[in-house]
Design a protein around this nucleic acid. Structure first.
Length: 465
RNA sequence: GUCCCGUUCGUCUAGAGGCCUAGGACACCAGCCUUUCACGUUGGCAGCACGGGUUCGAAUCCCGUACGGGACGCCA
């Protein structure tokens, strides 16, 4: 049977990076083994699930390049099937009707706590009861837990984990209102979807033992399990908004590339020798779930920036230009076709200096600015009378300079040589005049991209300003 | 509280008994390169949670302790 994995988020909010990483592992595992990777939306909690959240999860996965191979399955639409299995279990005598009310259950828990003993449900009085003797409350269906021995799970990440049957009790699989519980629905769905490998967050590890009750009672073969550790915030606590960006789409907003986010997420928990930078294509060839670590890791935003810088430099110039222009539009920065062309011309040098698309947009803005760009205070301070004289002189001489980047560089060197000054004392005033900033791509590249007319205009404006 | 899982530089990790004087990456510090800033490059700082075993030999195996996380719902 071919490998089938699934990512099963509940649509109660945005997709956070922990979920994104789980999706990534599911995707990679399936690809590695030539199988399918599916998506199941666990929307059985009607009160908390929203269509907006579903859409956001879909958008997030698409952005990350983790769209499923088949249309998503919506768990809520499968409730009849869940009920059918619950009733089948009842008919087989592997489950029973339990007539406890929520209040009675709460009282039992309170009593257990008062006596400082762990609460364990005992529904033995309901087993074998005739319908006519039952209380007049709507019953829930409980599955009969194993009474002795232990359950053993060979987890692909955590290794062999075992839990004694004394720890398990008869759990509810169908509520008194006829709706399935999560632990039951998951098993039925995974079985029906032919899921062979369940890869999920390690918070589900102990749930696995209860899910095994359903598999075993139905005589279904259990899938392989792999419980990957959670991602924590920089302080080691559970990941939350106060740690900064956690939603997958927040990263897009902040100018991170999906390939960088995936690379970073991959390295949180997965290791393969000293490999740090790795493409989707390459990791697909070597990914092994056994190489995932067992310990929780912390999200490291500084390292994400580094990964992003690496992938930014490797990215296609036309693509980056599109991204930057989109950001200009959002910032209200106006640009014409010549401005767009300047950005693309400068892109090889621009991307070398940025960590995010936001930074890239910031450093590219001077190129499309209508007229002389705004002057940074630090830059303005360096425009001494002496520097302004230099600019006036340059404006004159540049009129005859050859306007190709390579030639411009040589021209500037010759100019500095002839004037007997250091190249820096020529380049820096020029940079300030042309970009309004003390930092920019190499000055010859800037001159070439702006064009002679625009360059001279800016130089004169700065010299006289 | 009970059960389950975990613990290598600040962070992410390599490490499956001798290859470890514990390797790499990010961050940080210093130098080099240089028309600025980056990139690149050289070097530096810094870690096997603790205590017992097993073994000729342990970061690696076993047992405790401590600390962290997770699960204990008619939530998912």
């Amino acid at each position: 049977m071919s490998v089938r994995t699934r990512f099963a988020p509940s649509p109660t909010g945005y997709l956070h990076i922990g979920g994104a990483r789980t999706a990534l592992f599911n995707y990679l595992f399936a690809r590695r083994h030539g199988g399918q990777y599916l998506l199941r939306i666990e929307d059985t909690d009607r009160a908390r699930s929203t269509p907006e959240a579903v859409q956001q999860i879909l958008d997030s996965l698409e952005w990350l390049g983790l769209s499923p191979d088949e249309p998503p399955v919506f768990q809520s639409q499968r409730e009849p099937r869940h009920a059918e299995i619950a009733k089948a279990l009842l008919a087989m005598g592997k489950a029973y009707l339990a007539y406890d009310t929520p209040d009675e259950l709460a009282a039992m828990r309170a009593a257990a706590e008062a006596e400082k003993r762990p609460f364990k449900y005992d529904g033995s009085r309901w087993i074998g009861m005739e319908a006519k003797d039952a209380p007049s409350v709507a019953p829930a269906i409980r599955i009969i837990a194993p009474r002795e021995g232990e359950t053993v799970v060979k987890d692909l990440v955590q290794g062999e984990v075992r839990v004694a049957s004394t720890e398990l009790d008869d759990m509810i699989i169908l509520r008194s209102d006829g709706t399935p519980t999560y632990l039951h629905a998951v098993v039925v769905d995974d079985h029906d979807m032919d899921i062979t490998h369940v890869i999920r967050g390690d918070d589900h590890l102990t749930n696995t033992f209860r899910q095994c009750m359903v598999y075993d009672a139905m005589g279904w073969r259990r899938p392989h399990f792999a419980h990957v550790p959670l991602i924590h915030g920089a302080d080691g606590a559970k990941l939350s908004k106060r740690h900064g960006a956690v939603g997958a789409l927040d990263f897009r907003e902040q100018g991170f590339l999906p390939e960088a986010v995936c690379n970073c997420l991959l390295r949180l928990g997965w290791g393969h020798g000293d490999t740090e930078i790795i493409s989707r294509e390459d990791v697909t060839k070597i990914f092994d779930i056994a190489d995932v670590g067992r310990a929780a890791s912390r999200m490291d935003y500084a390292k994400l920036s580094h990964f992003n810088g690496v992938w930014l430099r490797a990215a296609d110039d036309a693509r980056l230009t599109r991204e930057v222009l989109e950001r200009f539009a959002k910032r209200g920065v106006l640009f014409g076709t010549d401005g767009a062309a300047r950005v693309e011309t400068l892109m090889p040098d621009l991307k070398e200096r940025a960590k995010t698309l936001e930074e890239l947009a910031g450093s590219a803005a001077f190129a499309v600015h209508e007229g002389p760009p705004p002057m940074e205070a630090k830059a303005a301070a360096l425009l001494t009378p002496e520097a302004k004289e230099r600019l006036k002189d340059l404006a004159v001489f540049l009129t005859d300079a050859p306007w190709e980047r390579k030639d411009l560089e040589q021209w500037l060197r010759d100019y500095a040589d002839v004037k007997g000054v250091k190249l820096g004392s020529v380049a820096q005033p020029l940079r300030i005049a042309l970009t309004g900033s003390t930092t920019s791509p190499p000055i010859d590249a800037v001159l070439a991209a702006l064009g002679r007319g625009e360059a001279v205009t800016r130089i004169l404006a700065a010299a006289e300003g």
